[in-house]
Design a protein around this nucleic acid. Sequence first.
RNA 1: GGAGAAAUGGCAGAGUGGUCGAAUGCGGCGGUCUUGAAAACCGUUGUCCGCCUCGGCGGACCGGGGGUUCGAAUCCCUCUUUCUCCGCCA
Length: 424
Amino acid sequence: MLHLKFIRENQALLVERLKLKNFDAFQLISKIIQLDDQRRQTQNIQDNKQAEGKRLSGKIGALINSGKQEDANKSKTDSSRLKEEIKTLNNQMQEISSTMESLLIQIPNIPHESVPPGKGEQDNFEERRYGVIPELEASAIPHWDLGKKYDILDFELGNKLTGAGFPVFKGKGAKLQRALIQFFLDEAIKAGYREIIPPLMVNEASGFGTGQLPDKEGQMYYIPSENYYLIPTSEVPITNMYRNVILEAKDLPVKNTSYTPCFRREAGSYGKDVRGLNRVHQFDKVEIVQIVHPDKSYDCLDEMVSHVEQLLRKLELPFRIMRLCGGDISFTSALTFDFEVYSAAQQKWLEVSSVSNFEDFQANRLKLRFHEESGKKNKIAHTLNGSALALPRIVAALLENNQTSQGIKIPAVLVPYTGFKMID
RNA sequence: GGAGAAAUGGCAGAGUGGUCGAAUGCGGCGGUCUUGAAAACCGUUGUCCGCCUCGGCGGACCGGGGGUUCGAAUCCCUCUUUCUCCGCCA
């Protein structure tokens, strides 16, 4: 959510910049400013009436104390009348505010100036590429077949237990999952992140705080009996830890990391893109989240990008980094880099990480602020997050790219975690 | 699951209808004293919104929501959370 003050002061600029996200904000913004004017006007009247009411109440008290009951009764009538007026005004205020809020949350974040124009993923800009795309033998097979061949990954069993999109990992497949999680967490901790294990269900307020609610209910699993949502990413609980929090400038940056399973309904997905591990309803992910000083957020974004880059290099996976264009970047993000690994048997790039700077968009909605120094006004912090990393597509690429006639080779960096060098 | 108690500023903790955004203590910040520090003393110390002649002025907030009253931290209703006791349990 953008700050009202910013919207008021940068109306034209905002409309212009949001065109990059293919969003026409003109009507919305005009309406918001009009409502805000109304709100201010109403508040002014209400404040004055309330001040008058306060004075009157004090007077009544004094009159009663000095025994002037009749004068007091007369003032009581005035006061009652005032109260009615205030109540009406207050109702108006609430209505205006809630309408304004519902409009405010419809405006997307402003894209950073380096965001390239474009309509969709085909227009994303490739920043750089690393690694060599392996030449597989003619007998190479995709990961869903490899999973069956080595009995490490079972989609049919998941289907029996739950339904489509809930894979079962077995034996060395399960161990590989655990190894990756451990490796990612260790690397994050080495990079200065604090590990958190959050709840896997969140309430409505948290869903709202990070922008899943309202409107995106359909993407989350919902527990009606408790009114809870299964988290689609640990970003939700980890970021909401700081909802309504005022930090000290000296505590920044705040760096948290968390491994959790993630649950996504992915309603409406179908076709070959969702085969195997490419898209599932439950998957594991290690997330990194930072809360930083506004002056530093783009340096932090670089730092996070390079962290993810190092992970992929250590796993010896070929990857490319994409700077998302205006049409593909998310509603909440100012600048996003996607990481894609090459899955050699499927012969396609798979998105494994998305690293974003939200600037103050998320923090504003969360009311996440910090004290610049004593005596100065509090400021909205900047937030960033990134996957480091999401497991399923990493596993898909590792299995496919490292397959040999002897079995699947485990990258050297993971061997201390798996305890084996080959899946065979 | 049953019974009872409670929720106040960064923390502790007063306040049971008006003069209370709220005593006091601790902590924080600034100062006096000191070669420096400690102690002592003095001052200051929440968030949000609006107005403005940028010095100020007004309003809201005592767990959330609603009500009673001219007036609510204080009374009533409701929700949430915490604590104690009992039961159940990994």
